[in-house]
């Protein structure tokens, strides 16, 4: 090639460009054909290979970006959900504690009320029983006194029926009646 160039440069005859073209076989038709050929190959290459590939790469990048963003969002959501869960758990624990304390207090209050009511009831029953016992006792005493008086009178009457005169008997009866009336009055007052 260098020889060719030296030959061209050294040759004084003819146009150097024309001689150069002749030496290297440059022809307008071939030049145009090569241009068309290259443009065609480049177009086909770009249309059917580069462009779809670039689109795919772009789509992949978009997909990856979306995936990463989605992952970040999910991570944030998970953290938020975890935080919310802990808050709910904490609140539930607090509520449960409050409820438990409330229930405990209520139970204690109810127990105290029931205890008090039971005590009152016991006192009332005891009082009633005491009253009943006292009534029965006084009735028994009254009955016993009556019987004792009757027995005493009958016994005295039997003893004295032979000894006492009618006059003495009448006087004694009056005294006895007066005593009975007195004792009846005392008893009535006591009742």
């Amino acid at each position: 090639m260098i020889g060719c160039l030296l030959e061209i440069s050294g040759n004084s005859g003819g146009n150097a460009v024309t001689r150069l073209a002749e030496t290297f076989g440059v022809q307008t038709e071939l030049l145009i054909a090569q241009i068309v050929n290259f443009c065609l190959v480049t177009y086909l290459l770009y249309r059917f290979a580069v462009k779809p590939t670039l689109k795919t790469v772009e789509a992949r990048q978009k997909k990856i970006e979306e995936g990463l963003r989605f992952a970040e969002e999910m991570k944030a959501k998970q953290a938020s959900a975890e935080r919310e869960r802990l808050e709910v758990l904490k609140k539930a624990q607090a509520d449960a504690q409050a409820l438990l304390a409330n229930t405990k207090a209520e139970g204690e209050r109810y127990l105290a009320e029931q205890k008090k009511a039971a005590e009152e009831k016991v006192l009332q029953l005891t009082e009633q029983a005491r009253h009943a016992m006292e009534g029965e006792r006084s009735a028994m005493l009254k009955e016993a006194k009556g019987e004792i008086v009757t027995l005493t009178v009958e016994t005295t009457e039997r003893l004295l029926s032979g000894i006492l005169t009618d006059e003495m008997r009448a006087k004694l009866n009056e005294q006895a009646a007066a005593l009975l009336a007195q004792s009846k009055d005392e008893h009535g007052t006591q009742a």
Partner: peptide
């Protein structure tokens, strides 16, 4: 239109380029 050996081989290789690249890529997938 002159047909040179350089021109013929250019066409052959141009066709090969298109076929090879298409064979490599086919339908691009993610």
């Amino acid at each position: 239109f002159p047909i040179t050996n350089g021109m013929i081989y250019t066409w052959v290789i141009s066709l090969a380029i298109i076929l090879i690249v298409r064979a490599l890529i086919r339908k691009p997938r993610l």
